[in-house]
Amino acid sequence: MSLTETEIKESIIDTYTKVASNGRLVAERFYSPEELQGLPTSAVELALGVGNPARHAALQRGEVVLDLGSGAGIDTLQTARKVGPTGKAIGLDMTPEMIRRARANANAMGMTKVEIIDGPMEAIPLPDASVDVVISNGVINLTMRKSQVFREIHRVLKLGGRFCVADMLVNGELPEDVLNHPTAWTG
């Protein structure tokens, strides 16, 4: 029997609430030492992405950037440094524990132009045409409604705005019992 959207969402929140650090293994794969320097240990050791979209988004000082599925904040904080004090980095997540960690990490860095908000990426709680750039790292694969997420990205972007996401994809067909395993949806 197929998992429902609610079951998948509950499984994702449960998994990301309980996830433990695996050291710097993921962070060191995708970020340079310079990019990691000065970031809180909690943000670095809970990097769970599959790329480095903030590096490839050509971020400019003064831009407003939304990070979908911000987790403990590694990409949001890196973004905040790139856009500077005249810009703003907004992290969006639906897991209360990750929101708490990201806010704590932003506070630890003294970042005042970082906002971490609670909500689903399928219904982003931001006005139309309110951000310059949307980034996301290993998160859009978690939803069954990927087209809806891109509709929301399109809605919140200003005209001329851009997105850059890194994600994990499947090449071919996964066996049905793998597709219906909750862990296959949470990773």
Partner: peptide, 30 residues
């Protein structure tokens, strides 16, 4: 879970069934 995944996915597919990529796009307009 990883051991179960290896048993569930045919060996010939295991090294190429998952990939990562960056996707970039622009909202056309002024």
């Amino acid at each position: 879970f990883l051991a179960w995944l290896k048993r569930s996915i045919p060996p010939a597919q295991q090294d190429r069934i998952i990939y990562t990529a960056h996707i970039r796009g622009k909202k056309d307009g002024h």
